[in-house]
């Protein structure tokens, strides 16, 4: 593990008018660490994710990221060009709905290759080879490389979205309900895949989910949110096996046992 965090979130607050989106959230994320943010719909977890990932300007607070040169930069004091470059090279963002993160009318190969072309890769053969390898890694038959994602199942689309995000070797990936809307068997496969990739690539990730099983399987650390506040924060198995806060106990006790 590195001696410096990758991301420093300091007192991030987002108001929508008078209504609280999230309030005074602070944490640090280290390289290779997976943080799950759990809570019900409306608890502020997606607001927090967007505010950290520069998709939504927070009302107050700072988000600092350690660039590849080792320097910390305040994301909201960076130029837009640099921020967007960071987002499509060093970061990934996996949307709940794959259609939000994919180009549905271009082929799977081009979806994966887009980031490579965006950073200046100009060799068709190499781009295609890399895309093909990544399709293999996310368990999509490489003979589907020229098919459009609209011909794919939900699980395949989500795997394609993951490949598209990881092709540039990002260090930090944001995931918003990555298994939402998928069948249970498809979820298990996706989770295992994500878990393997995160381990192999040493990715840091922030995963927003309302599914505690997803948090258990993927994350090292967990934050529980309610009404825009982080009410409990700790090691994932500690929070799940020994929940302290009334709301966390309610969440944990609400899991259906199979």
């Amino acid at each position: 593990m590195s001696d410096h965090p990758l991301l420093r979130v300091n007192a991030v607050t987002k108001f929508y008018g008078a209504r609280v989106g999230c309030r005074d959230v602070s944490f640090e994320l280290w390289p290779g660490e997976v943080l799950a943010v759990v809570g019900e719909s409306g608890s502020g977890k997606t607001t927090l994710l967007n505010a950290i990932s520069t998709r939504l300007l927070p009302t107050s607070g700072t988000v600092e990221y350690r660039m590849r040169d080792g320097q910390f930069r305040d994301l909201y004091r960076m130029g837009e060009a640099e921020r967007r470059f960071l987002m499509r090279t060093d970061w990934g963002f996996v949307h709940q709905n794959p259609a939000d993160g994919l180009r549905m009318t271009v082929s799977a190969g081009a979806n994966v290759g887009e980031r490579l072309m965006a950073i200046g890769d100009r060799h068709y053969g190499n781009i295609r080879d890399t895309a093909s390898q990544w399709l293999g890694r996310v368990e999509i038959d490489t003979d589907r490389i020229d098919d459009q994602p609209r011909d794919f199942s939900g699980g395949m689309r989500q795997r394609l979205q993951i490949a598209r995000n990881l092709v540039t070797g990002p260090r930090l990936v944001f995931m918003d309900e990555p298994t939402g809307g998928l069948d249970v068997s498809v979820q298990a496969r996706l989770l295992d895949l994500v878990r393997g990739l995160v381990n192999d690539l040493g990715l840091a990730a922030i995963v927003v989910t309302h599914d505690l099983a997803v948090a258990r399987l993927l994350s090292h650390r967990m934050m529980v949110m309610k009404d825009g506040n982080v009410i409990e924060h700790g090691l994932t198995d500690r929070v799940l096996d020994d929940p302290r806060e009334p709301y966390t106990q309610l969440l944990v006790s609400s899991i259906l046992q199979v």
Binding site: G234, L235, R238, D241, D242, R244
Partner: peptide
């Protein structure tokens, strides 16, 4: 045991 392992607070 769980406390020693950090699993329980």
């Amino acid at each position: 045991l769980k406390m020693l392992y950090g699993n329980y607070s």
